[in-house]
Design a protein around this nucleic acid. Structure first.
Lengths: 134, 134
DNA sequence: GTATAATCCTACCGAAAAGGTAGGTAAATG
DNA sequence: CATTTACCTACCTTTTCGGTAGGATTATAC
């Protein structure tokens, strides 16, 4: 399987935030309950979304989360790259990987590379608002 | 990462077999050495290729492996599905998976499903002989 | 300013998969 | 029969996945 729960949960949380008042802050507990995700597990998924501006977090009473971007400007590719780390099909295409020793006579690198391009392009062509409509 | 060593090694072994006399049997030891793969690890990758007719195996002196299909008729998609088990992006799209409870109001299943189609289509459009040329 | 409601941080844990090793068995050939 | 080869079973180590526990920190409401 290519996409783990981290990526899928993150997407679900973002979609959940799409469907309410865009200005209101929704506590994590509510979202977790609605989406059937453990609060504790969600706790380790959210910070990365906050740090990268996809959602805004407010502490204290009356706080919670809300979207930090417009649904039409939030690409699924961004969410997946953040939560999954990478979308590369093979190790040597991961960002920051050390170059493969067999690169020179590797007959498959072109294929993986093109697949990598297709994958990123596909998920970058879909936004949260696309998903909300469909 | 999407594709593990099993799939990549299998592909390399098949490509290795492509480049010699198509009728000769090549012992595993030779291939493993040439491709830098441990013989013992290769031992658990080969049987699945044999069972599905991608390669032929002959025991005893003078034995080894040779291609069981024409390079132009061996699709990368077949190899990956055999060795990786599945190319599905999410669990609910794996063959034989139990249906997801949230299917009815899942906003993402369409996206995953389409990606699954694209993935299989891409790798099914590439054969061993395509890789050998490029 | 204190209680409270919320996010954030650090650490741990069990299960599964990835990647590989070891040793022995079975088949074919010379 | 001895050698060469593939095949089978079991085990092992490391990493990732999915999740839990407990506390620290921040900010609001009263």
């Amino acid at each position: 399987m290519i996409v783990s729960t981290r990526g899928r949960y993150a997407l679900r949380v973002l979609l959940d935030l799409c469907s309410g008042d865009p200005d209101a802050f929704v506590p994590m507990k509510e979202i977790a309950k609605r989406e059937g995700i453990s609060v504790k597990y969600m706790e380790q998924i959210m910070p990365v979304l906050v740090k990268n501006g996809l959602v805004e977090a407010v502490h204290g009473k009356g706080g919670g989360y809300r979207l930090g971007v417009k649904p039409s400007e939030c690409r699924v590719g961004d969410v997946l790259r953040l939560t999954e780390g990478d979308l590369a099909p093979v190790a040597c295409l991961s960002c920051g990987a050390e170059p493969c020793k067999r690169y020179a006579d590797c007959k498959t690198i072109g294929m993986w590379s093109e697949f990598n391009r297709i994958t990123n392009e596909y998920f970058d062509g879909i936004t949260l608002s696309d998903l909300n409509k469909g």
